[in-house]
Structures are given as structure tokens and as C-alpha cells.
Amino acid sequence: DGCIQFTRHAGDVLLNFNRLRSRNILTDVTIQVDGQQFHAHKAILVACSGFFYSVFMDPENANLSAISLDPKVDPKGFSILLDFMYTSCLDLKDSLVLVTMNTAIYLQMEHVADTCHRFIKSRH
């Protein structure tokens, strides 16, 4: 007995989710960030972010199809983290790494925030 492990399965699944997002297929929530709108899949947001987990695990919010984030959240930082959720790649431009770190802290994505912090320290 044993199994055949398809080593690239996780990546293939995530790539398909990103294709669905880019075509707005089966997206079930719109996130409003300081005037910008992002379509996404709740399941991916909840799987990647402690903040969204706490929002959508609340039965009152489970059926929400749109939520607005605190105005202090930077749309560029959110965009970078949303792309990360769907690609596993974190876009790190020097000019945006602090915004990305602060947004990761807000979204309760501690491992990403720690990585940004280490990146910032390594640059100074």
C-alpha cells in the first residue's frame, strides 16, 4: 500500500483559484479599501488571514458579500497581500515594504509581517 503524491498539486490548485479571481468567477466577496474594490473568494481570504477568519467565522457576517476595511489600510499594501494569498509570491519593493508589513499586521498575517520585518532590518 502507498500513494502517488502529485508534488505540484497545491500550486496547480492555487493557480486555478487565481485564474478564477482574475475572471471574477465564483468570487463571493468584494473588499473595499479606501475607494478601491477587490473581488475575492472568502475561502481563500479566511485560509490566509486571521482578520478575515475572525470576520467570516462570525455567523452574522457569514453571508456578507461586501466589506469595507478601515480607511487606514493602504490599497496598494492590500493588493500586494491579496496577490500573495493567490500566488505565494510577495511583491517586495523597497518603497512599499513598510506599507505591506503594516497591512499584514492589520490582516493578522503574522508570518508575512515577520518576513517583511526581517527584510527591512536586512536593508538597514
Partner: peptide
């Protein structure tokens, strides 16, 4: 599944959703 007679398949595992139809 690590270890117990695991055969690793490196190829694609599922269909690829196209960028557009």
C-alpha cells in the same frame, strides 16, 4: 503521506483554468 511507499509524481495534477474562455 510522507514515507509509506510514496511515489512522487512531478507532472501536472489537474486541468488548468484558461485566462479567458
Amino acid at each position: 503521506y510522507e514515507g509509506v511507499n510514496t511515489i512522487k509524481e512531478m507532472g501536472r495534477s489537474i486541468h488548468e483554468i484558461p485566462r479567458q474562455d
